[in-house]
Computed example of a mutant assay.
Amino acid sequence: MRQFIAPLLVAAAALLPLAGQAQDAIKLGYAKCAHCTPLALTPQNADASKVKLEATGFNTGNDVLTALLSKSIDVAQVTYLHYATALDKGFDVVAISGQINGGSQILVGNDVPVAENDWAGLKKVIADYKAQGKPFRVAASRGNAQDIHMRGAFAKQGIDINKDVQFINIPNPSDHVQALRRGEVELICSVDPFATQIREVKAAKFFTYPYDQAAGKLTNLIVTRSDVIASKPKAVEETVRSIIKVNDLMTKDKGLFIDTIQKVTGLDKAIATGAAANLYPDYEIHRASAVAIAQMMRDLKYINNDVTAAVEKNIDYRFLEAATGKPKSQLGY
């Protein structure tokens, strides 16, 4: 009997490391925007003895959120907007870290007669279009941070996006440049590096950074599901730790930031350099601002329900606290 038990014990022992590896595996998804691209460096900056981290790029934040909800990935880089939208629909999402903010630009067509930051001039042009019976067409990728930045900035300036202008949804930000070149829109709020690309190729001109609204410069948020937290808490912690480490690298080495944007997006160095100037590494989760964003989204009828309580309830600071040694009161709470 012993001759059969011994091989079985050896086989069982051999399987244990494999089970541990599967338990500690994390699939991280990110969008291919400038501030998202540093996440491509997280696997090489994670402790391989604690997590087997895999990072995959997607075209848009909506694609990343869909992958998380379908359980194709375990951790997702989305936006504060995606977070509120997911909670509005009753999905299981938990915020575990910030990442990088900024990256939004409002651009206007070259023929639109307005100067930089001239909101009064823009409102006059919109009124002129209205008087002529022509739609003043504004675009963004519905569901991303730039969309809410634009809507919030317009609302603050007294521009009604439902009555004063015609909204055009262009899902993939890489298509924004062609929409402007073809004259399909008069104004667009785009994400870097595509916004900087538009300016570099002179498909449009800069109007403003749309940060004067409740969301401010807040853009990216790292989220997961409650089942991932329950089954792989240490792997989630190490994933957050790797994000913080990469953020520190981006802060200290702008050249690495630029090279990473260039490598992941395939855009040239001038565009990557311009994009990096509009980005702000920040791993904190800004609770009060997240609530304000959710309130603004409801006011703008972007979501149907009051999710402010859910926004607060579904922020889990434990992983940031463990990775930084700081209390949540110093991490955006």
Rank of each mutant, 00 (worst) to 15 (best):
N62G: 13
D63Q: 10
D63S: 11
L69R: 12
K71S: 11
S72H: 14
S72N: 15
D74Y: 04
D74I: 04
V75N: 03
A76L: 11
Q77T: 07
T79E: 04
Y80T: 03
L81F: 14
H82A: 03
A84F: 07
T85K: 13
A86M: 12
K89Q: 14
G90C: 13
G90M: 14
F91I: 09
V93C: 03
V93R: 03
V93I: 07
V94L: 07
V94T: 13
A95R: 00
S97N: 06
G98N: 02
I100S: 00
I100D: 02
I100A: 06
N101S: 07
G102R: 04
G102M: 02
G103P: 03
G103F: 04
G103L: 00
G103W: 01
G103H: 01
S104N: 12
Q105S: 09
L107C: 10
G109E: 09
G109I: 07
N110C: 13
N110V: 11
N110A: 13
D111R: 14
D111P: 10
P113D: 05
P113E: 09
V114P: 05
N117E: 13
D118N: 10
D118I: 06
W119M: 14
W119K: 07
G121T: 10
L122D: 03
K124Y: 10
K124M: 12
